[in-house]
Design a binder for these strands. Structure first.
Lengths: 231, 231
DNA sequence: GATTTCATCTCGCTC
DNA sequence: GAGCGAGGTGAAATC
């Protein structure tokens, strides 16, 4: 990785056109050829960038550009889309290179996947006598989070969200409509499960005969801890 | 902005839990207190980060941590959510600070708004004899991107997207349904215009009698250039 | 201030 | 490769 602090202006031409006026910025050149232009603030998102796979060509400025104070031109070209990022370098304040090696990567825990896993493990939370068919049950229009059967053997499709919004109800409705056309599954009832369900979403769901289930993440983790301590 | 290259491990606890094993990484400390952890590859997204507003506290490791090789502990705490990012520093390879000043910011051009402006200016692209009624025509459920009339005086509602997806067709369908109930407008035909229209979206649109129009952004800008040269 | 929509979204997964 | 859905989504515009 090479780190350059320099006065620069930047132009991007690709899916959109964008321009950064002259200012001092951090230019990060990663070993895969990608380039990030960061300011000293804002968010984790660079002001401008080029994603890999791409290639960097450094060229000399023409006479007019030299007069304007440009010392180097960096042209970063995307290998597939031909998007271009052109960095005009003026004064360089810092320039260093570093060997980082490959990164072992991030280990995540605690998102919707974990909620799904917990609910699948404690499927009785859906109601007495419920059994798990499978997680991520595939349909033609996408995967249903959990497919289960109730005590009487009827199909139950569960849509899981961290925050239960109206979108999630629409999503589940589409799944139910499709699944109820499948004679192997029909009739399928829906359960909309989330840590928090917004009133509008609850209204819409119940109006469509979809049951709402509020999940207590910490309590579910507690069930897991209890289980792991007992067995 | 402070740039540190160091061996480190990182733990994040907030909306999810995440861990980065020991490796050499770039730590970017911005002047607003935010911290970014970057590896030498991947995308513009850091491996881990803390967004502003947040505060950084540097503390000494305890005895056990010293034995493990930790020389410093950085605790970054979000001011509002109390999310925490803990960076355990081992060996430091580089450490430098730089004055960047505030950034004038990115100037964008070429998003949906520009497409809409261009199409409104060259409304004949919809077909011979078409005239513009207005952009952002308000309805009870939101604004229709462009309302026009065809050569025979019939209403034409245009939904514009950079990428024509199934969502856009659904949106236009809702508008058409509503507008066709208005005797001043009905009958209204729909045009789904985008730089690129996905096959599924095209299928759905044409199935509903909505015409699809692929827009060439560069060519449209060319029309503009020609016009500005001529007049 | 809350909400909706857009994004050079990115990222991961499945078919 | 295309399609779908989640994201510590973030950021901007609108209500």
């Amino acid at each position: 990785m090479r780190l350059v602090i320099a006065q620069c202006s930047v132009d991007y031409a690709g899916r959109l056109s964008a321009h950064l006026p002259l200012a001092t910025r951090l230019l990060m050149l990663k070993s895969d050829g990608s380039v990030l232009v960061h300011s000293d603030g804002g968010s984790y998102k660079p002001l401008n960038w080029m994603s890999p796979p791409c290639s960097l060509a450094i060229s000399a400025p023409d006479e007019l550009q030299v007069e304007a104070g440009i010392t180097e031109l960096w042209t970063v070209t995307h290998a597939k889309t031909a998007d271009q990022l052109i960095v005009s370098i003026y004064e360089v304040q810092h320039d260093s290179a570093h060997e980082l090696g490959i990164d072992p990567g991030l280990i995540k825990d605690g998102v919707e996947a974990h909620l799904q896993k917990l609910l699948a493990e404690h499927i009785h939370l859906l109601g007495d006598g419920h059994t798990l068919v499978r997680r991520e049950y595939m349909t033609a229009i996408g995967p249903v989070d959990i497919l289960a059967r109730d005590a009487s053997g009827g199909s139950v499709a569960v849509e899981l969200k961290r925050r239960g919004d109206i979108d999630g109800v629409e999503q589940l409705t589409r799944y139910l409509e499709l699944m109820n056309r499948d004679p192997h599954l029909a009739p399928v009832v829906g359960v909309f499960a989330a840590q928090q369900i917004k009133p509008q979403a609850r209204m819409l769901a119940e109006d469509r005969g979809i049951r709402c289930l509020v999940l207590d993440y910490d309590a579910m983790r507690g069930l897991d801890d209890t289980a792991s301590k007992l067995f």
